[in-house]
Amino acid sequence: MSELSEPPVSGTPVRARLVDVAREAGVSKATVSKVLNGRTDLSVRPETRQRVHQVAEALGYRPHSGARALAGASTHALALLVPALANPTYVTIARGAYRRARELGYLSLLAEDFDGQEADEAFNDLAREGRVDGLLIASARPGHPLIEGLRRSSVPHVFLNRAVEGSGRNVTMDVARASVTALDHLHGLGHRAVGHIAGPYGIVPSQVREQAFLRHAAELGMSATPVAHGDFTEEGGQAAALELLDPGATGTPASGPPVTALYASSLAQAIGAMRAVRSLGLRIPEDISLVGNDDLPVAAYLSPPLTTVAMPLYELGTAAVDALVGAINGQPQADVVVPTEPRLVLRDSTASPGGSS
């Protein structure tokens, strides 16, 4: 093998080509292509494979996406973008996506959409440069630059748990039914004043859940249904619960009778609401009943164990991978709603007003 060429001192850097790797490694272009694409049906010595990879890395060689497409090459990798790894909801979704991807012969990579990250460029580059075959996007807030970039892109992609209107590639759950399930339970226990801890403004699933909450509460004839918004975190849930339970302390005028129950949009918010209830000297469920959205194992180990509305998070991840792999294989895309309905997981955090079960 010859010594690696020195990079140009001035001018525009020249992108390393397949022929450059072949020349430096002392093998044919066909051998380089097959080695870098992971072909195992070649009679190539291990040391030759290692040399090809070393040269490619030293030269900074990256396969051209157009060449990959013409060759019909596939990385058999998918990338999943989530808004926050700290949110356990997305851990369950990611697990479903990862396992389904493995069943279909793909690897699922995970990325977090940090505030200020140039996600439209970084995430799209994964596909444009041939490093992944498609994108699973769970972070698609209104105005996100990634959405506009994907409208101009041919990269296969789907949106999950974040419907983008008109995209025709949304994979979602029946989040409206979650509010109906929670309210039916609380109404059946005798609660007529129920507060809702909603998610941040501008998040579509949160908006749908809130609208369904208000609509169904009106259908049930509830006397008070105040709503407070907060992040999908323990801190967000605590602040929103204090706003609903002690409006005077937060400078919010009281309206209607005090609530006897709370319905939180996420498990993390519900945990924060538990702390808020106790900070006011109130008890769960004797004074305030509490229902959390999403069911994860930790809910059963809280004090008291938390009543939740279980969402088909795992199924959402698998359905999104099915839809994306179908698109990669040329199948027509369409919106998908996971058929599994939300279900109530009854524990000890809810009771009739006054504390009787």
Rank of each mutant, 00 (worst) to 15 (best):
L346W: 03
V9K: 13
Q331T: 10
A69R: 11
V9W: 05
H191K: 09
S108C: 15
T40P: 12
Q207M: 09
Y90N: 00
A217P: 08
F159E: 00
E118F: 00
E165F: 10
R162C: 02
L80Y: 00
V227T: 04
A320M: 10
V336Q: 04
L135W: 03
G202I: 03
A163L: 05
T307D: 09
L136H: 02
R102V: 01
T225A: 15
A122S: 15
S356D: 13
D231G: 13
G26S: 05
E112N: 13
S139H: 12
R95E: 14
P304L: 11
L220N: 05
M274N: 04
L107M: 12
S28T: 15
S357F: 14
S10K: 05
V155C: 12
H191W: 05
T89E: 08
E57Y: 01
T250M: 01
A182S: 14
T31R: 06
P297N: 02
S179C: 04
A270R: 03
G166K: 11
G168F: 04
L135K: 11
S28N: 09
M274F: 00
E341W: 06
V82C: 03
E118H: 12
L186A: 08
G354Q: 03
P13S: 07
E6V: 13
V337G: 04
V325I: 06
E57S: 15
L135F: 05
D287K: 05
S74K: 14
E6A: 15
V259Q: 01
L183R: 10
V180N: 08
R209A: 14
E3K: 11
S357L: 06
V208K: 06
A22I: 02
V345N: 08
I137K: 08
G230F: 07
S108T: 15
M1F: 10
T75A: 14
S352G: 15
A310D: 06
Q50K: 14
N329T: 05
R45L: 11
V32T: 07
A79Y: 03
A25S: 15
H144P: 01
G354H: 05
A30E: 14
A264G: 10
S43Q: 15
A73D: 04
E118C: 06
R283Y: 06
D231A: 13
R17W: 00
P297A: 01
E3W: 09
E235D: 14
G188R: 08
Q50C: 04
A239E: 13
H216L: 07
R62I: 08
S10I: 10
T308P: 09
P7A: 05
A101W: 02
P353S: 06
T12H: 14
A56N: 11
T250P: 14
L313I: 04
G66W: 11
D246Q: 13
G96D: 10
Q117K: 11
H157M: 01
P312G: 03
R49Q: 12
L296A: 07
A77M: 02
G230P: 06
L189Y: 03
G251D: 04
L81R: 07
L18T: 11
S65E: 14
L242A: 10
L344F: 01
R162F: 00
L186Y: 07
A16W: 12
H191L: 08
R15T: 12
A22F: 11
T350D: 01
V277T: 08
P342M: 00
G149K: 07
